[in-house]
């Protein structure tokens, strides 16, 4: 590999300083077939949305996994607080599940 602009070992391009691996992170969602929803499959690093879409195509749909792709800049994902997991999610209330109803005979399987 030849480079026209010599760099010191481990020198960081100042224009890219502060971003991991030089490029920002994007979350990838793939729709496996028409009628299904897009499902999160992983992430890619890319310079912009178009490049991220192409990287996602190359990395996550090599074996005909999908018919449609979304990419979303990871910085736009807002997540719940991991430390609040117990308060938010572990308070299971069985009566919220629709299991306390008698299903009339004539309905059969639902």
């Amino acid at each position: 590999m030849s480079y026209d602009v010599p760099r010191e070992e481990n020198e960081v391009d100042p224009e890219f300083a502060g971003t991991q691996n030089g490029f920002p992170l994007w979350e990838v969602f793939v729709r496996a077939q028409r009628g299904l929803n897009h499902v999160h499959v992983g992430s890619v690093h890319a310079a912009d949305a178009q490049s991220a879409t192409q990287a996602a195509r190359d990395v996550y749909t090599r074996r005909a996994e999908g018919v449609s792709l979304w990419v979303v800049a990871s910085e736009h994902i807002h997540a719940s607080d991991p430390d609040a997991q117990g308060d938010w999610f572990n308070d299971s209330k069985p009566y919220r599940h629709p299991t306390f109803y008698e299903i009339p005979e004539e309905i059969g399987h639902m």
Binding site: N21, G22, F23, V44, H45, A46, Q54, A55, D58, V59, R62
Partner: peptide, 9 residues
């Protein structure tokens, strides 16, 4: 390649 994504591409 400079990025893992580009390596696969």
């Amino acid at each position: 390649m400079p990025e893992l994504e580009e390596d696969i591409a």
